[in-house]
Amino acid sequence: MSLLPRLLILPLALLLALPATAWGDDAPLLETVHAFLYEQSQALGDEVMIEVHPPAGQFPACEAAEPFLPGQRELAPGRVSVGVRCGDEGRQVRYLQAQLTVFGDYPVAARQLSPGERLGADDLRLERGDLGRLPRQALREIDAALGLQLTRPLGEGRPLLASMLRAEPLVERRQRVVVEAHGRGFRVTREGEALDEGGHGERVRVRLSGREIIEAEVIAPGRLAVAL
């Protein structure tokens, strides 16, 4: 088994101190890619481990290497493809594979939580782990969940997902509500019946007195708005 991937997970300062003979002719290229990923990944978590895989085939030395992320995609934990432009004006392009393992804190339920609960600081706690193993919609900050309502059960120690949180309803189903319609130079109000419940900023259906059904945005308790 090659020792190369294991060496590349060392901190950058140690990585650059290793002799070039440890990697052979690919050493300058791999150092450049590692340094690029190290810089790009600083905002992902508190601790980042980078494993760059050497090229699968034999290629000439990459002069004036300029790494980039294909498609200008945002860097995320997991398997990463890195493009490298080589030579004059970057006319030659190579692609290397790397593995990013990112460790950091994320909020989890401090106890068994039930649907409808409004989350407070005592309901959550921080845990530390591999962020790449979290579900895609997992929250990273406790503050992002405070004051929101849980829409389904959540067991103790389970991470919070954005899809299971909603703003506390300001409008209830079948509630009599006031709908504001406004445009340039005018503003009118009409009464109606909410057909859905909704929190601040959500859109719900409203049946007006003439049986007309419209969609409006919740702006306050019992009040909605439409723009004309």
Rank of each mutant, 00 (worst) to 15 (best):
P70N: 10
E51W: 05
I142K: 09
R203Q: 15
S163H: 01
D26E: 11
A65V: 13
D88M: 11
I50M: 04
S114V: 15
M49C: 03
L10P: 03
P135F: 13
P28D: 05
L134T: 02
A43S: 15
E212D: 07
A220Y: 03
E197V: 04
R85W: 10
V33S: 11
G210L: 04
T101Y: 07
A61Y: 02
L44I: 04
L228H: 13
P67C: 04
A138D: 08
P221H: 07
V226L: 00
L195N: 05
R211M: 08
L113W: 01
G147Q: 14
V204W: 06
G24V: 12
R118C: 10
E193L: 15
I219A: 02
P153E: 07
L160C: 05
L150I: 12
P221E: 08
L161F: 01
Y38P: 00
Q58C: 03
P135I: 08
R85C: 06
P153F: 08
S41W: 03
L154W: 08
V80W: 05
Q92Y: 14
Q58E: 15
A194F: 05
R223I: 01
R85L: 01
T189L: 02
A35W: 04
V226R: 01
G87H: 02
D25W: 07
G83I: 04
L148R: 11
S81L: 15
A144C: 08
P54M: 01
E202P: 03
I214Q: 11
R184P: 12
L208P: 06
P70L: 05
G192Y: 08
R176F: 13
I214E: 07
Q40T: 06
